[in-house]
Design a protein around this nucleic acid. Structure first.
Length: 420
DNA sequence: TCTGGGGTCCTAGGACCC
DNA sequence: TCTGGGGTCCTAGGACCC
Protein backbone atom coordinates (compact mmCIF):
# COMPACT_ATOMS: atom_id res chain seq x y z
CA UNK A 1 0.00 0.00 0.00
CA UNK A 2 2.95 2.31 0.65
CA UNK A 3 3.70 2.32 -3.07
CA UNK A 4 0.23 3.76 -3.75
CA UNK A 5 0.89 6.75 -1.53
CA UNK A 6 1.96 9.09 -4.28
CA UNK A 7 3.68 12.28 -3.20
CA UNK A 8 2.62 15.15 -5.38
CA UNK A 9 1.83 18.69 -4.34
CA UNK A 10 -1.78 19.09 -5.33
CA UNK A 11 -3.71 22.28 -4.69
CA UNK A 12 -7.49 22.37 -4.83
CA UNK A 13 -9.01 25.84 -5.04
CA UNK A 14 -12.62 26.84 -4.56
CA UNK A 15 -14.16 30.30 -4.71
CA UNK A 16 -16.04 31.19 -1.57
CA UNK A 17 -19.82 31.58 -2.08
CA UNK A 18 -18.94 32.26 -5.69
CA UNK A 19 -22.22 33.46 -7.24
CA UNK A 20 -23.12 35.42 -4.12
CA UNK A 21 -19.63 36.94 -3.99
CA UNK A 22 -19.92 38.11 -7.61
CA UNK A 23 -23.26 39.76 -6.85
CA UNK A 24 -21.89 41.50 -3.76
CA UNK A 25 -18.88 42.78 -5.70
CA UNK A 26 -21.10 44.16 -8.45
CA UNK A 27 -23.36 45.84 -5.92
CA UNK A 28 -20.61 47.11 -3.66
CA UNK A 29 -21.88 45.03 -0.74
CA UNK A 30 -19.89 43.27 1.96
CA UNK A 31 -20.20 39.53 1.38
CA UNK A 32 -19.76 38.81 5.08
CA UNK A 33 -22.27 41.31 6.26
CA UNK A 34 -25.16 41.17 3.88
CA UNK A 35 -28.11 38.81 3.55
CA UNK A 36 -28.03 38.10 -0.18
CA UNK A 37 -29.54 35.11 -1.96
CA UNK A 38 -28.91 34.26 -5.60
CA UNK A 39 -32.09 32.76 -6.96
CA UNK A 40 -34.56 33.40 -9.74
CA UNK A 41 -37.65 34.99 -8.18
CA UNK A 42 -39.69 34.13 -11.26
CA UNK A 43 -39.47 30.48 -10.23
CA UNK A 44 -41.59 31.16 -7.17
CA UNK A 45 -41.03 29.81 -3.68
CA UNK A 46 -40.08 26.41 -5.06
CA UNK A 47 -37.12 27.92 -6.86
CA UNK A 48 -33.63 26.81 -5.87
CA UNK A 49 -31.25 29.11 -4.08
CA UNK A 50 -28.07 28.85 -6.13
CA UNK A 51 -25.92 30.59 -3.54
CA UNK A 52 -26.19 32.51 -0.30
CA UNK A 53 -23.75 34.76 1.53
CA UNK A 54 -21.72 33.49 4.52
CA UNK A 55 -23.76 35.93 6.58
CA UNK A 56 -26.90 33.89 5.86
CA UNK A 57 -25.06 30.61 6.32
CA UNK A 58 -24.20 31.75 9.81
CA UNK A 59 -27.89 32.29 10.46
CA UNK A 60 -28.45 28.65 9.56
CA UNK A 61 -29.83 29.06 6.04
CA UNK A 62 -29.09 26.10 3.76
CA UNK A 63 -26.85 27.02 0.85
CA UNK A 64 -28.62 24.85 -1.70
CA UNK A 65 -32.23 24.92 -0.68
CA UNK A 66 -35.56 26.30 -1.79
CA UNK A 67 -36.58 29.90 -1.44
CA UNK A 68 -39.52 28.93 0.80
CA UNK A 69 -37.11 27.25 3.20
CA UNK A 70 -35.53 30.54 4.21
CA UNK A 71 -36.98 31.43 7.63
CA UNK A 72 -39.69 34.08 7.42
CA UNK A 73 -38.09 36.28 10.07
CA UNK A 74 -34.96 36.85 7.99
CA UNK A 75 -34.90 39.80 5.62
CA UNK A 76 -32.85 39.14 2.55
CA UNK A 77 -31.94 40.58 -0.83
CA UNK A 78 -32.72 38.34 -3.78
CA UNK A 79 -30.33 38.56 -6.73
CA UNK A 80 -31.36 37.17 -10.07
CA UNK A 81 -28.58 34.91 -11.33
CA UNK A 82 -26.35 36.42 -14.00
CA UNK A 83 -24.49 33.45 -15.44
CA UNK A 84 -22.52 35.43 -18.00
CA UNK A 85 -21.08 37.57 -15.23
CA UNK A 86 -20.02 34.49 -13.27
CA UNK A 87 -18.44 32.90 -16.32
CA UNK A 88 -16.48 36.08 -16.97
CA UNK A 89 -15.30 36.21 -13.36
CA UNK A 90 -14.43 32.53 -13.41
CA UNK A 91 -12.24 33.07 -16.46
CA UNK A 92 -10.44 35.92 -14.70
CA UNK A 93 -9.59 33.59 -11.84
CA UNK A 94 -8.41 30.84 -14.20
CA UNK A 95 -6.11 33.41 -15.79
CA UNK A 96 -4.56 33.94 -12.38
CA UNK A 97 -3.80 30.21 -12.05
CA UNK A 98 -2.36 30.17 -15.55
CA UNK A 99 0.12 32.84 -14.53
CA UNK A 100 1.68 30.20 -12.29
CA UNK A 101 1.26 26.89 -14.08
CA UNK A 102 0.67 25.54 -17.58
CA UNK A 103 -2.78 24.34 -18.58
CA UNK A 104 -1.47 20.73 -18.53
CA UNK A 105 -1.13 20.95 -14.77
CA UNK A 106 -4.51 22.58 -14.26
CA UNK A 107 -7.87 20.83 -14.25
CA UNK A 108 -11.01 22.93 -14.23
CA UNK A 109 -13.47 20.92 -12.17
CA UNK A 110 -16.38 23.34 -12.15
CA UNK A 111 -17.14 27.03 -12.57
CA UNK A 112 -15.53 27.73 -9.20
CA UNK A 113 -13.19 24.80 -8.49
CA UNK A 114 -9.86 23.68 -9.92
CA UNK A 115 -7.07 21.22 -9.18
CA UNK A 116 -3.46 22.17 -9.80
CA UNK A 117 -0.39 19.96 -9.63
CA UNK A 118 2.40 22.32 -8.53
CA UNK A 119 5.02 19.61 -7.88
CA UNK A 120 7.26 20.73 -10.69
CA UNK A 121 6.99 24.43 -9.93
CA UNK A 122 8.10 24.62 -6.32
CA UNK A 123 11.80 24.64 -7.10
CA UNK A 124 11.27 27.15 -9.84
CA UNK A 125 9.50 29.55 -7.52
CA UNK A 126 11.55 28.52 -4.51
CA UNK A 127 8.38 28.28 -2.45
CA UNK A 128 6.69 25.58 -0.41
CA UNK A 129 3.24 24.47 -1.55
CA UNK A 130 1.75 26.38 1.36
CA UNK A 131 3.59 29.59 0.42
CA UNK A 132 2.58 29.23 -3.21
CA UNK A 133 -1.08 28.75 -2.37
CA UNK A 134 -0.96 31.79 -0.09
CA UNK A 135 0.47 33.81 -2.96
CA UNK A 136 -2.19 32.61 -5.39
CA UNK A 137 -4.99 33.34 -2.93
CA UNK A 138 -3.70 36.89 -2.48
CA UNK A 139 -3.37 37.32 -6.22
CA UNK A 140 -6.96 36.19 -6.78
CA UNK A 141 -8.15 38.64 -4.15
CA UNK A 142 -6.14 41.53 -5.60
CA UNK A 143 -7.07 40.90 -9.22
CA UNK A 144 -10.70 39.85 -8.93
CA UNK A 145 -11.86 40.81 -5.45
CA UNK A 146 -12.89 37.21 -4.78
CA UNK A 147 -11.90 35.09 -1.81
CA UNK A 148 -10.73 31.56 -2.52
CA UNK A 149 -9.93 28.67 -0.23
CA UNK A 150 -7.27 26.07 -0.85
CA UNK A 151 -6.76 22.44 0.14
CA UNK A 152 -3.29 20.96 -0.19
CA UNK A 153 -2.58 17.25 -0.37
CA UNK A 154 -0.21 14.62 -1.74
CA UNK A 155 -2.97 13.48 -4.08
CA UNK A 156 -6.16 14.87 -5.61
CA UNK A 157 -8.53 13.25 -3.15
CA UNK A 158 -6.80 14.48 -0.01
CA UNK A 159 -6.43 17.99 -1.46
CA UNK A 160 -10.14 18.11 -2.20
CA UNK A 161 -11.22 16.76 1.17
CA UNK A 162 -8.81 19.06 3.01
CA UNK A 163 -10.45 21.91 1.15
CA UNK A 164 -14.04 20.80 1.75
CA UNK A 165 -13.64 19.84 5.37
CA UNK A 166 -11.04 22.16 6.82
CA UNK A 167 -9.80 25.02 4.61
CA UNK A 168 -13.12 26.85 4.71
CA UNK A 169 -12.91 27.14 8.48
CA UNK A 170 -9.28 28.18 8.72
CA UNK A 171 -8.25 31.78 9.11
CA UNK A 172 -5.80 31.69 6.23
CA UNK A 173 -8.33 29.73 4.10
CA UNK A 174 -5.76 26.98 3.60
CA UNK A 175 -5.59 23.43 4.91
CA UNK A 176 -2.80 21.01 4.19
CA UNK A 177 -3.31 17.29 4.77
CA UNK A 178 -0.69 14.62 4.41
CA UNK A 179 -0.69 10.87 4.88
CA UNK A 180 0.13 11.20 8.57
CA UNK A 181 -3.03 13.27 9.11
CA UNK A 182 -5.32 10.53 7.87
CA UNK A 183 -6.19 9.03 11.23
CA UNK A 184 -6.90 12.30 12.97
CA UNK A 185 -8.48 14.27 10.12
CA UNK A 186 -9.95 11.85 7.60
CA UNK A 187 -11.01 8.93 9.75
CA UNK A 188 -12.98 11.07 12.17
CA UNK A 189 -15.31 12.40 9.47
CA UNK A 190 -18.97 11.50 9.92
CA UNK A 191 -21.53 11.39 8.39
CA UNK A 192 -19.91 9.71 5.44
CA UNK A 193 -21.58 11.86 2.81
CA UNK A 194 -19.51 14.85 3.87
CA UNK A 195 -16.72 13.25 1.89
CA UNK A 196 -16.34 13.86 -1.83
CA UNK A 197 -17.67 10.89 -3.79
CA UNK A 198 -19.93 9.47 -1.09
CA UNK A 199 -23.55 10.47 -1.49
CA UNK A 200 -26.62 9.84 0.62
CA UNK A 201 -27.44 6.51 -1.02
CA UNK A 202 -24.02 5.01 -0.47
CA UNK A 203 -23.96 6.40 3.04
CA UNK A 204 -27.18 4.60 3.84
CA UNK A 205 -25.90 1.28 2.51
CA UNK A 206 -22.62 1.63 4.39
CA UNK A 207 -24.43 2.55 7.60
CA UNK A 208 -26.33 -0.71 7.35
CA UNK A 209 -22.98 -2.49 7.50
CA UNK A 210 -22.19 -0.60 10.69
CA UNK A 211 -19.86 1.81 8.91
CA UNK A 212 -20.43 5.29 10.33
CA UNK A 213 -17.10 7.07 10.00
CA UNK A 214 -14.43 7.11 7.30
CA UNK A 215 -12.24 5.27 9.81
CA UNK A 216 -14.81 2.46 9.98
CA UNK A 217 -14.71 2.29 6.18
CA UNK A 218 -10.90 2.27 6.07
CA UNK A 219 -10.77 -0.59 8.54
CA UNK A 220 -13.51 -2.64 6.93
CA UNK A 221 -12.52 -5.66 4.87
CA UNK A 222 -11.59 -4.52 1.39
CA UNK A 223 -12.74 -7.73 -0.26
CA UNK A 224 -16.18 -7.66 1.33
CA UNK A 225 -16.58 -4.11 0.10
CA UNK A 226 -15.59 -5.17 -3.38
CA UNK A 227 -18.06 -8.03 -3.24
CA UNK A 228 -20.89 -5.76 -2.15
CA UNK A 229 -20.18 -2.67 -4.25
CA UNK A 230 -17.97 -3.80 -7.12
CA UNK A 231 -15.01 -1.71 -8.14
CA UNK A 232 -16.67 1.24 -6.47
CA UNK A 233 -16.38 -0.55 -3.14
CA UNK A 234 -12.68 -1.05 -3.60
CA UNK A 235 -12.30 2.56 -4.64
CA UNK A 236 -14.13 3.67 -1.49
CA UNK A 237 -11.78 1.62 0.67
CA UNK A 238 -8.66 3.11 -0.92
CA UNK A 239 -9.97 6.62 -0.59
CA UNK A 240 -10.88 6.03 3.04
CA UNK A 241 -7.22 5.12 3.48
CA UNK A 242 -6.23 8.38 1.80
CA UNK A 243 -5.09 6.69 -1.38
CA UNK A 244 -5.78 8.08 -4.84
CA UNK A 245 -3.42 7.58 -7.75
CA UNK A 246 -5.34 9.77 -10.21
CA UNK A 247 -3.20 12.33 -11.99
CA UNK A 248 -4.36 15.68 -13.35
CA UNK A 249 -3.88 14.33 -16.86
CA UNK A 250 -6.25 11.44 -16.08
CA UNK A 251 -9.02 13.94 -15.50
CA UNK A 252 -8.99 15.14 -19.09
CA UNK A 253 -12.15 13.85 -20.63
CA UNK A 254 -12.12 11.65 -23.70
CA UNK A 255 -14.18 13.59 -26.29
CA UNK A 256 -16.09 10.37 -26.95
CA UNK A 257 -17.51 10.61 -23.47
CA UNK A 258 -18.52 14.22 -23.77
CA UNK A 259 -22.16 15.07 -23.69
CA UNK A 260 -24.41 17.99 -23.20
CA UNK A 261 -28.03 18.39 -22.41
CA UNK A 262 -30.87 20.77 -21.82
CA UNK A 263 -33.77 20.27 -19.53
CA UNK A 264 -36.53 22.50 -18.32
CA UNK A 265 -39.23 22.38 -15.76
CA UNK A 266 -42.33 23.91 -17.32
CA UNK A 267 -44.47 26.50 -15.61
CA UNK A 268 -47.69 24.79 -16.48
CA UNK A 269 -48.88 21.39 -17.61
CA UNK A 270 -48.29 20.56 -21.24
CA UNK A 271 -49.87 17.84 -23.32
CA UNK A 272 -49.42 16.18 -26.64
CA UNK A 273 -50.89 19.12 -28.55
CA UNK A 274 -48.50 21.77 -27.31
CA UNK A 275 -45.41 19.91 -26.13
CA UNK A 276 -44.16 19.63 -29.72
CA UNK A 277 -43.25 23.25 -29.65
CA UNK A 278 -41.09 22.83 -26.57
CA UNK A 279 -39.35 19.78 -27.96
CA UNK A 280 -38.80 21.61 -31.23
CA UNK A 281 -37.17 24.50 -29.49
CA UNK A 282 -34.94 22.29 -27.42
CA UNK A 283 -33.76 20.42 -30.49
CA UNK A 284 -32.92 23.76 -32.08
CA UNK A 285 -30.95 24.82 -29.03
CA UNK A 286 -28.98 21.57 -28.91
CA UNK A 287 -28.34 21.56 -32.65
CA UNK A 288 -27.17 25.12 -32.51
CA UNK A 289 -24.74 24.30 -29.73
CA UNK A 290 -23.43 21.35 -31.73
CA UNK A 291 -22.76 23.64 -34.65
CA UNK A 292 -21.15 26.23 -32.42
CA UNK A 293 -18.78 23.63 -31.02
CA UNK A 294 -18.32 22.01 -34.43
CA UNK A 295 -19.40 18.65 -33.08
CA UNK A 296 -21.69 15.89 -34.25
CA UNK A 297 -23.69 13.61 -32.01
CA UNK A 298 -24.38 9.89 -32.38
CA UNK A 299 -26.53 9.42 -29.33
CA UNK A 300 -29.72 11.14 -28.32
CA UNK A 301 -31.47 10.90 -25.01
CA UNK A 302 -34.91 12.21 -24.42
CA UNK A 303 -37.01 12.32 -21.30
CA UNK A 304 -40.39 13.49 -20.07
CA UNK A 305 -41.51 13.85 -16.49
CA UNK A 306 -45.16 14.12 -15.56
CA UNK A 307 -46.74 16.52 -13.09
CA UNK A 308 -45.73 15.93 -9.49
CA UNK A 309 -49.14 14.78 -8.39
CA UNK A 310 -48.94 11.84 -10.73
CA UNK A 311 -45.21 11.41 -10.91
CA UNK A 312 -43.35 9.16 -13.24
CA UNK A 313 -42.26 9.72 -16.78
CA UNK A 314 -39.72 8.16 -19.05
CA UNK A 315 -36.21 8.64 -20.21
CA UNK A 316 -34.68 6.82 -23.12
CA UNK A 317 -31.61 7.10 -25.24
CA UNK A 318 -31.03 5.96 -28.75
CA UNK A 319 -28.09 5.61 -31.05
CA UNK A 320 -28.51 7.68 -34.19
CA UNK A 321 -28.29 6.19 -37.67
CA UNK A 322 -25.49 8.60 -38.47
CA UNK A 323 -23.70 11.44 -36.66
CA UNK A 324 -25.56 14.71 -36.96
CA UNK A 325 -25.92 18.31 -35.90
CA UNK A 326 -29.28 18.74 -37.57
CA UNK A 327 -32.25 19.86 -35.58
CA UNK A 328 -34.70 18.18 -37.93
CA UNK A 329 -33.09 14.80 -37.40
CA UNK A 330 -33.10 15.19 -33.62
CA UNK A 331 -36.77 16.16 -33.74
CA UNK A 332 -37.65 13.18 -35.83
CA UNK A 333 -36.12 10.83 -33.26
CA UNK A 334 -37.67 12.66 -30.32
CA UNK A 335 -41.02 12.51 -31.97
CA UNK A 336 -40.73 8.76 -32.53
CA UNK A 337 -39.76 8.26 -28.92
CA UNK A 338 -42.51 10.53 -27.67
CA UNK A 339 -45.17 8.65 -29.60
CA UNK A 340 -43.82 5.35 -28.39
CA UNK A 341 -43.68 6.15 -24.69
CA UNK A 342 -46.07 9.00 -23.88
CA UNK A 343 -49.07 7.93 -21.82
CA UNK A 344 -51.20 11.07 -21.97
CA UNK A 345 -50.39 12.48 -18.53
CA UNK A 346 -49.70 16.19 -18.01
CA UNK A 347 -46.06 17.03 -18.69
CA UNK A 348 -43.95 19.20 -16.38
CA UNK A 349 -40.39 18.54 -17.44
CA UNK A 350 -38.59 17.85 -20.68
CA UNK A 351 -34.96 16.82 -21.05
CA UNK A 352 -32.90 16.39 -24.13
CA UNK A 353 -29.29 15.35 -24.29
CA UNK A 354 -26.72 14.39 -26.86
CA UNK A 355 -23.62 12.28 -26.39
CA UNK A 356 -20.96 10.31 -28.27
CA UNK A 357 -19.70 13.52 -29.74
CA UNK A 358 -17.21 13.65 -32.55
CA UNK A 359 -15.50 16.49 -34.34
CA UNK A 360 -17.29 17.69 -37.39
CA UNK A 361 -14.38 17.59 -39.82
CA UNK A 362 -14.46 13.82 -39.69
CA UNK A 363 -17.99 13.87 -41.00
CA UNK A 364 -18.60 11.41 -43.79
CA UNK A 365 -21.46 12.12 -46.07
CA UNK A 366 -23.94 9.36 -45.73
CA UNK A 367 -26.37 7.75 -48.03
CA UNK A 368 -29.41 9.12 -46.23
CA UNK A 369 -28.81 12.73 -46.99
CA UNK A 370 -28.45 13.91 -50.55
CA UNK A 371 -25.32 15.89 -51.02
CA UNK A 372 -26.86 19.04 -52.45
CA UNK A 373 -29.70 18.96 -49.96
CA UNK A 374 -27.18 18.69 -47.17
CA UNK A 375 -25.26 21.70 -48.37
CA UNK A 376 -28.40 23.73 -48.60
CA UNK A 377 -29.42 22.90 -45.05
CA UNK A 378 -25.87 23.48 -43.91
CA UNK A 379 -25.62 26.96 -45.37
CA UNK A 380 -29.01 27.95 -44.00
CA UNK A 381 -28.01 26.85 -40.52
CA UNK A 382 -24.77 28.68 -40.81
CA UNK A 383 -26.47 31.89 -41.85
CA UNK A 384 -28.93 31.59 -38.97
CA UNK A 385 -26.13 30.96 -36.50
CA UNK A 386 -24.18 33.95 -37.79
CA UNK A 387 -27.12 36.31 -37.49
CA UNK A 388 -27.82 35.11 -34.00
CA UNK A 389 -24.19 35.48 -32.99
CA UNK A 390 -24.20 39.03 -34.28
CA UNK A 391 -27.58 40.30 -33.15
CA UNK A 392 -28.50 38.01 -30.31
CA UNK A 393 -30.30 34.71 -30.16
CA UNK A 394 -33.70 36.35 -30.28
CA UNK A 395 -32.99 38.24 -33.49
CA UNK A 396 -34.11 35.32 -35.55
CA UNK A 397 -36.66 32.88 -34.25
CA UNK A 398 -39.24 30.78 -35.95
CA UNK A 399 -42.80 32.00 -36.32
CA UNK A 400 -43.96 29.06 -34.19
CA UNK A 401 -41.81 30.35 -31.38
CA UNK A 402 -44.01 33.41 -31.05
CA UNK A 403 -46.89 31.23 -29.91
CA UNK A 404 -48.00 31.46 -26.29
CA UNK A 405 -46.69 28.05 -25.29
CA UNK A 406 -43.16 28.79 -26.38
CA UNK A 407 -40.43 29.21 -23.80
CA UNK A 408 -37.58 29.83 -26.21
CA UNK A 409 -37.45 33.61 -25.90
CA UNK A 410 -37.01 33.36 -22.16
CA UNK A 411 -34.52 30.54 -22.49
CA UNK A 412 -32.40 32.42 -25.00
CA UNK A 413 -31.78 34.96 -22.32
CA UNK A 414 -30.49 32.26 -20.04
CA UNK A 415 -27.22 30.42 -19.68
CA UNK A 416 -27.30 26.99 -18.14
CA UNK A 417 -30.97 27.48 -17.36
CA UNK A 418 -30.23 30.52 -15.28
CA UNK A 419 -30.56 34.17 -16.07
CA UNK A 420 -27.73 35.28 -18.30
C1' DT B 1 -47.38 23.09 -0.40
C1' DC B 2 -43.71 24.37 -3.85
C1' DT B 3 -40.87 23.95 -10.20
C1' DG B 4 -33.37 24.00 -11.30
C1' DG B 5 -30.10 22.85 -14.62
C1' DG B 6 -25.96 20.71 -16.44
C1' DG B 7 -22.63 17.37 -16.23
C1' DT B 8 -19.70 12.50 -15.53
C1' DC B 9 -19.13 7.72 -14.41
C1' DC B 10 -20.50 2.96 -13.38
C1' DT B 11 -23.19 -1.42 -13.73
C1' DA B 12 -25.94 -4.80 -15.83
C1' DG B 13 -28.51 -7.46 -19.11
C1' DG B 14 -29.50 -8.53 -23.85
C1' DA B 15 -28.05 -8.78 -28.67
C1' DC B 16 -24.83 -9.98 -31.78
C1' DC B 17 -20.50 -11.54 -33.72
C1' DC B 18 -16.64 -14.60 -34.28
C1' DT C 1 -26.45 -33.86 -29.39
C1' DC C 2 -25.09 -30.15 -26.40
C1' DT C 3 -23.18 -27.09 -21.64
C1' DG C 4 -19.04 -22.59 -25.28
C1' DG C 5 -16.97 -18.42 -24.47
C1' DG C 6 -15.07 -13.92 -25.14
C1' DG C 7 -15.63 -9.32 -26.86
C1' DT C 8 -18.26 -5.41 -27.97
C1' DC C 9 -22.22 -2.62 -28.63
C1' DC C 10 -26.72 -0.96 -27.10
C1' DT C 11 -29.89 0.77 -23.71
C1' DA C 12 -31.65 1.49 -19.02
C1' DG C 13 -30.89 3.13 -14.73
C1' DG C 14 -28.45 4.60 -10.60
C1' DA C 15 -25.32 7.61 -8.20
C1' DC C 16 -22.60 11.43 -7.64
C1' DC C 17 -20.97 16.20 -8.35
C1' DC C 18 -21.36 21.56 -8.64
Amino acid sequence: MEGLKIKRNILCFDLKSFFAACECLERGLDLYNCPLVVADPRRGGGGITLAITPYLKNLGVKSRGRIYEIPKNIDYIIAKPRMNLYIKKSKEVVDVYLNYVSSDDLHIYSIDEVFIDVTNYLNLYNLTDYELSLKILKDIKDKTGLTATCGIGPNIFLAKVAMDIEAKHNKDNIAKWDYEDIETKLWTISPLSKVWGIGKQTEKKLNLLGIKTIGDLANYNKFSLKKKFGVLGEELWYRANGIDITKISDLKLDPQDKSFSHSQVLFKDYYEHNIDLIIDEMCDVIASRLRKEKMLTSLLSFGIEYSKSLGGGFHHSQKLGHPTDKSAYLKEICSLMFNKYYNGDPIRKVSLGVGRLSEKDSYQLNIFEENSELEKIESTHQAVDEIRAKYGKNSLIKASHLLDDSTIKERNEKVGGHNA
